[in-house]
């Protein structure tokens, strides 16, 4: 078989294949529920209700979507320039670390100064974490996939070391956790009384800013050019190495903001279970959004909904919560195939 490019795909093709992908994902999820001895319709219903069935559920989903928007944007920005940043997890923790370092009483500043300082420091730290692998890639040709992946493990051990050492909360009853942030260092809630913090607002702003950078600035154009064809970009006089480094700084900074927002908006302190793999899930979020920053917001909410819904379904129906990860991985694989099939025709000869 071979693939043939379709010059002008029909609307049926453009909608049909992604719809089939989504259908297959739901079908596969249902059969897993069946395998676990549960009623598939009831299971899917429970996931839906758990994700968006009440005001509480919906806000929970948006809260869970917040770090995913940041890591999704980080991945989208990097992948667009073909910089394979699989280290959003490490960058997120770097941001969380800065939030804790500045926000637990080291600076006696008012909120209006302290929060921007924490966010800025977080972005800087995240950018620096990705700068290493980016420079290794551009200067020495070391593959960034492996280095960023390995960095995730190093960073988590580093955080663990700090939480059991200098950053350990003296009031923490021996648990490896940091001290709590001072009240001035907490992100306020968007509406008083509702459990949704300003981290979500910040995530929306970040998505718009990334969209502006990508579609309205020279840097955005250069990032796209480097991603599409490095040789051609170089030939056209684009400083490829510098563009990759800039992309890395932006990507790392975005992921780190997710860590800042989780600590300052939701948790109030730093623990080792701050992220249940937000960095890796960010890859799914970004791919489902076709690397579009505004799409990232929608797909992050969808992905968060699946997780939150599956958690609540698992408690009620007894289907292991890992069904969420399976369905999302299936969605990712079927969707990349579906997108390819909208652009190519399969010829059997």
């Amino acid at each position: 078989m071979r693939l043939e490019v379709i010059a002008r795909p029909s609307p049926l093709r453009l909608i049909g294949f992604p719809a089939i992908a989504l259908g297959l994902t739901v079908l596969f999820g249902s059969s897993l529920a069946l395998l676990a001895g549960a009623n598939p319709f009831q299971t899917l219903g429970l996931i839906l209700r758990g994700a968006a069935g009440s005001q509480f559920a919906l806000l929970e989903t948006l809260n869970r979507a917040t770090p995913l928007i940041f890591t999704g944007l980080a991945v989208a920005v990097a992948f667009r320039a073909k910089l394979w940043n699989i280290g959003a997890e490490a960058q997120l923790y770097a941001g969380a670390l800065m939030a804790v370092l500045l926000g637990t009483g080291a600076l006696g500043w008012p909120s209006g100064l302290l929060l921007p300082a924490m966010a800025g420091a977080a972005m800087l730290a995240g950018a620096l974490v990705l700068l290493g692998p980016a420079l290794l890639k551009t200067k020495l040709g070391v593959d960034e996939v492996v280095t960023t992946l390995l960095f995730n493990f190093i960073m988590l051990l580093f955080i663990s070391m700090l939480l059991e050492g200098p950053l350990k909360d003296p009031m923490g009853m021996g648990w490896p956790q940091s001290s709590r942030l001072v009240p001035e260092a907490r992100l306020p809630r968007i509406v008083e009384g509702l459990r949704l913090h300003w981290g979500f607002g910040l995530a929306l702003i970040a998505a718009v800013v990334v969209w502006v950078i990508q579609s309205r600035t020279t840097l955005g154009y250069e990032m796209r050019a480097v991603g599409q064809n490095k040789q051609a970009a170089e030939f056209a006089g684009i400083p490829v190495g510098r563009v990759i480094v800039k992309t890395a700084l932006l990507s790392g900074g975005l992921a780190a903001l997710g860590g800042f927002s989780e600590v300052a908006g939701l948790r109030g302190n730093l623990t080792l279970d701050l992220s249940p793999g937000f960095g890796y899930t960010g890859i799914i979020v970004a791919m489902l959004a076709l690397l579009n920053p505004i799409g990232v917001v929608i797909s992050a909410i969808f992905v968060a909904g699946v997780f939150v819904g599956a958690d609540s379904m698992s408690r009620a129906a007894g289907v292991p919560t890992y069904i969420a990860n399976i369905m999302l991985a299936t969605a990712l694989l079927t969707m990349v195939l579906a997108i390819a099939l909208t652009r190519f025709r399969v010829r059997w000869d």
């Binding site: 693939l3 394979w84 890859i283 292991p320 890992y322 990860n325 399976i326 694989l333 390819a340």
Partner: peptide, 29 residues
């Protein structure tokens, strides 16, 4: 996914890792 369809080996590989890991954990539970 990666050979006849020529999809991104990075994305598919990571997707397989997520799918395989979650499947094993699901089956174990």
């Amino acid at each position: 996914l990666t050979v006849p369809f020529g999809l991104s080996q990075h994305v598919v590989g990571l997707g397989i890792t997520l799918l395989a890991t979650a499947s094993a954990y699901f089956a174990y539970r």
